[in-house]
């Protein structure tokens, strides 16, 4: 496999998306603050979009559908970020902390 024609190869994009997903998942598990978890979640969403776009370019008979799906994922990611960050602001106002170990009011 020639290294300079990697961009014309479905596997490259799939592997990159897998690595992005794994890193995002690792960050989501290890981060102890809500904003860090949100950042990792954005990366997971990006990996999913990259997979959609790769399949759209190389396999799908209709190369417009994957692009449209990615645009919808972006809109939902924007909505998720807005809601998540307003929750972070509300939690910070109440607990004076964004560490998820400090938010223990509902803990059994």
């Amino acid at each position: 496999m020639e290294i300079l024609t990697l961009y014309n190869n479905l596997t490259t994009y799939l592997l990159l998306a897998a690595v992005l997903f794994g890193l995002g998942m690792y960050g989501f598990i290890t981060r102890r603050d809500f904003i860090g978890m949100l950042i990792s979640a954005e990366m997971i969403l990006n990996a999913a979009s990259l997979n959609f776009m790769a399949f759209n370019r190389f396999l799908s008979p209709d190369p417009a559908t994957g692009q449209i799906f990615t645009l919808f994922i972006m809109a939902i990611a924007a909505a998720e970020a807005a809601i998540g960050l307003s929750l972070v602001v509300a939690v910070y106002r109440y607990y004076r902390s964004i560490d998820c170990q400090d938010v223990t009011k509902l803990q059994g």
């Binding site: 479905l10 596997t11 799939l14 592997l15 998306a17 897998a18 690595v19 997903f21 794994g22 890193l23 998942m25 690792y26 598990i29 190389f58 396999l59 799908s60 008979p61």
Partner: peptide, 21 residues
């Protein structure tokens, strides 16, 4: 856990027989 998921996805991507249309 994260490494396992990554390698699982990578193995899936490498082993599957993708058929273009």
């Amino acid at each position: 856990c994260a490494t396992l998921v990554t390698f699982g996805l990578a193995a899936l991507a490498l082993s599957a027989n993708w058929i273009p249309f």
